[in-house]
Structures are given as structure tokens and as C-alpha cells.
Computed example of a mutant assay.
Amino acid sequence: MPQHVQGVIAPGRNEPVRVETIVIPDPGPGEAVVKIQACGVCHTDLHYKQGAINDEFPFLLGHEAAGIVESVGEGVTDVTPGDFVILNWRAVCGTCRACTRGRPWYCFATHNAKQKMTLLDGTELSPALGIGAFAEKTLVAAGQCTKVDPSVAPEVAGLLGCGVMAGIGAAINTGNVGRGDTVAVIGCGGVGDAAVVGSRLAGAAKIIAVDIDDRKLDKAREMGATHTVNSRTADAVEAIRELTGGFGADVVIEAVGRPETYEQAFYARDLAGTVVLVGVPSPEMKLELPLLDVFGRGGSLKSSWYGDCLPSRDFPMLIDLHQQGRIDLAAFVTETIGLGDVEKAFARMHEGDVLRSVVVL
């Protein structure tokens, strides 16, 4: 029987979000209803509100979440009611050309729930990244549920559902940071700081954090950066080269998603070094680089989707590392809030003084 719950919607482009009653259908084949315990406020949610992703309003916001499986539909065997899960937005299909070649993190046919959640009047909602977790409960594809150790705090676990996984994965999975490498991270919000954590975990010898905000640079040092550069007052490329013996970094992770910072990343890497773009650009942005420089510098220019993660592999591993004290996922949680505080959380995000506001239900 359909359930009525409270959830946060974005009704239209740049309109204030509001709490509404959401209708959650019973799970159909391959689907699951999850009772949400915590959900991080991610910049992608703000992009949805601003219409920067698409214009399929109204959106049910929230996607960086953890909770308890309440019920499952026909044919679901990987999760059962009562399982503690992190939600992911790339449920792999297992049958596309990437999956059958053993590279499921590049799955070309990721999927979501087929049924729609609605408002009371029947208006269909577009769930952010196919999840919609600023709600007491949500409907997802069962493959979007990844079981992890239930002893971890939900507000910590949920962060792996997007930003923290994207940053750690950009360093470890996409950038292949190795022992003794030099790494530069441009942009020190939640994703950038996670890239710092991932680089430290991988054994990087030098981790250079770049931002225009000294508060963010201080936090990056706490997370493991060995050096910081304020690019408002210094030339980021020259500073990175100076800190790497004049060569540039082995891996440069661009966590902003702007042409000017990507260009910094391109020229701040060593010859045959790697650039990883994990910051999300907006549709109108264009990049212009001399093609001869692209050819002459060699190396790799990579984009990192979701940290090139495989949730079933990476989420449990990172939870284990957190519980062992090898990474501190709780350090990303700046504040916990309620459903009615999401609009204020977006404002704090603009001010730059939070890594993550986390909605706790």
C-alpha cells in the first residue's frame, strides 16, 4: 500500500525548497523502499535546484544517504528488509559492454526505480540522481543499495554515497596515485578534501592543496595535505612546480569543474603526468588548449565519474578503513540538520564554511 512521507522538493528553477508530502509506492520488481536515516547536502543538489542539471522539475532532492531497507519487490535477492545500506546512484546492469569486459565501474546502463514517487496531487517527481533521499523514505532500484557494517553512524556512512567516494576514488581509482607520488588537488571542498584523504591513503609523498579560501586550506591540512597554495594570491601552476622540484605533480586532481582551474591542472602536472577531472562543469562551459601542448606533454587526461567506484567493492572497504581509524569520515560532517533546514544549508554552502551539512531523520 502506498505510503505518505515528508520530503524536500525543488519546485522550480532557483525557487526555495520546501517540505511536502511524498507518495511512495510499494516496491515493484527489482525495487526497494529504504527508510532514510541520514543524507548529506551535496553541491549537486544545489545544481538541481538551480536547473543546472536539467529542467525536469519538481525534483525530490537528496542522494548522499544511508538507511534501512524496509521492503523489497519481486526478484530482489541481494538485500533484504532490515539491511543497513548506503545508496548509490550508479546501479550497474551487469550485462552492458563495460560490465561484460570486467569494468563495471564504467557501466553504460546504470538504472533506477521504474516507478515514480509523486506529490499528493499525482505530480511525478524527479529524484536527484535517481535517489531522492531528503525524505523519510525513498524508492530506489535494489541495485542502488549497498550493504555495509550497521555499526557505523548513518551520517558518516551516507557520505560515501557521493562526494567523499568521488574524491577518494578520483585519487585511488582514476588517478592511480601510488607510493611516493606528488599530488596536487585544486579545489578543497568536500570532494577535494576527500581526494586529499585518498592520496594520503595511497601513500603519496607530497599532497599540495590549492584553493582561494584559507579556511578551506586549513581544513585540507587537517585532512592530510602537506602543502597549501592560496591561488588568489599566488600563481597556482608556478607554486606547484616550485614545490615539485620544477617538474609539476605526478597527479593533479581538479575538483572545481571550471575551464580556468582545469587549465591550471593541465600545466601543473609533470610531463607524462595525469590530470583527473572530478569537479562537475555546467553545460555551457568550454575548454580551449593548444593541441600541440596536449600532444607534447603526453600523459593522461581523465574524467572521474563517481570516483570510478564499484559500490559493492568500495563502500564496505572504506567503512572498514574508517572503523580501523585509518581514515576519519566523521571529519567531513560539519553539522547535522533537519529536513526543514536544507535551504539554510544551501546558503551555508555558498558561504564556504561547511564541508557537509547532513540531514538526520
Score class of each variant (00 low, 15 high):
Ala184Val: 13
Ala184Thr: 09
Leu159Cys: 09
Arg179Trp: 00
Val164Trp: 00
Gly178Ser: 14
Ile168Asp: 02
Val183Lys: 03
Val152Glu: 11
Val191Glu: 02
Gly187Trp: 14
Gly189Asn: 07
Thr182Arg: 00
Gly192Trp: 05
Val177Phe: 07
Gly190Ala: 15
Met165Thr: 14
Val191Lys: 04
Gly178Met: 01
Gly178Leu: 00
Asp181Thr: 03
Gly180Tyr: 03
Gly187Asp: 06
Glu155Ala: 05
Thr174Ala: 12
Gly161Val: 13
Gly180Cys: 04
Gly175Ile: 13
Gly169Ala: 07
Gly190Thr: 13
Leu160Ala: 13
Ala194Val: 11
Ala153Asn: 09
Pro154Gly: 04
Val152Leu: 14
Gly167Tyr: 15
Pro150Val: 12
Gly163Val: 11
Val164Ala: 08
Val164Asp: 10
Ile168Ala: 04
Gly180Lys: 09
Ala166Lys: 01
Val185Trp: 04
Glu155Gln: 09
Cys162Ala: 12
Gly158Glu: 02
Cys188Asp: 00
Ala166Tyr: 07
Val164Phe: 00
Leu159Met: 13
Val156Ser: 04
Ile186His: 09
Cys188Trp: 02
Gly178Thr: 05
Ala171Gln: 14
Gly190Glu: 11
Leu160Trp: 03
Met165Glu: 15
Gly167Met: 13
Asp181His: 13
Gly187Ile: 15
Gly161Asp: 14
Gly190Ile: 12
Ile168Leu: 11
Leu160Ser: 10
Gly161Trp: 04
Pro150Tyr: 04
Gly192Cys: 07
Ala166Cys: 13
Cys162His: 04
Thr182Met: 01
Gly175Leu: 11
Gly169Glu: 05
Thr174Arg: 07
Asp181Glu: 04
Val185Gln: 09
Thr182Val: 08
Val164Cys: 04
Thr174Trp: 00
Asp181Arg: 05
Gly192Phe: 10
Thr182Ser: 15
Leu159Lys: 01
Gly178Ile: 00
Gly169Asn: 08
Ala170Leu: 12
Gly163Glu: 10
Gly175Thr: 14
Asn173Ala: 08
Val177Ile: 11
